[in-house]
């Protein structure tokens, strides 16, 4: 082993043994290595959390701001579609067909989905035929509030038929 240095300096502070510096270096490297490993683990943890958060939030994307007017329009359109879809077309047509007779001709069938009502325009040979038709409509389960709105004798026709209008409301049928 090489002899230790001879320290007889009159100005400089005697050198400390090298092992002190080496020890500090080793400790510093160990601490630095530990910090690097912790930092890496923390980064990985953060990445995992970010990934999990991303999976949870896929159906919660921030939506861009939509004007209130457009939302209301869309809501109305949706309501209209829903009303159209909820009209009991089958029951309504069945009721009209059931009420039909040979002396009454149906000219126009006009549903009002918003008011959930139905307006019928027809032509009857006689006044009695017209009233029987209205009565049969009033007996239909799918309709309620059936009433005669207008009637008019077609004088320009030699057989003098009666053209009339009937108003009825949809009845919710389970």
């Amino acid at each position: 082993m090489t002899p230790r240095r001879l320290e007889l300096d009159y100005v400089a502070v005697p050198r400390r043994p090298q092992w002190i510096g080496v020890s500090f270096l080793v400790v510093a490297l160990v601490v630095a290595g530990d910090l690097v490993l912790r930092y890496r683990d923390a980064q990985r943890g953060l990445a995992a959390l970010d990934a999990a958060q991303g999976l949870l939030n896929t159906d919660r994307r921030a939506r861009s701001a939509v004007p209130k007017e457009r939302i209301e329009e869309e809501a109305k359109a949706v309501d209209a579609v829903i009303r159209q879809l909820t009209v009991p077309w089958a029951q309504m047509i069945e009721a009209v067909e059931t009420a039909s007779a040979s002396d009454v001709v149906l000219l126009q069938l006009q549903p009002e989905t918003q008011q959930r009502s139905l307006r019928l325009t027809a032509e009857a040979k006689t006044r009695e035929a017209m009233l029987r038709y209205v009565r049969r409509l009033g007996e239909a389960r799918a309709l309620s509030g059936v009433h005669l709105v207008t009637h008019q004798v077609q004088t320009d026709n030699p057989s003098r038929p009666i053209q009339f209008s009937v108003q009825a409301a949809f009845r919710s049928v389970q």
Binding site: M1, T2, P3, R5, L6, E7, L8, D9, A12
Partner: peptide
């Protein structure tokens, strides 16, 4: 540094004296 000659010489060649 102010060092005696013996210190300078010993430290320079101490490896020879082991």
């Amino acid at each position: 540094s102010v060092q005696p000659y013996l210190m300078s010489a010993f430290n320079r060649w101490r490896a020879l004296l082991k």
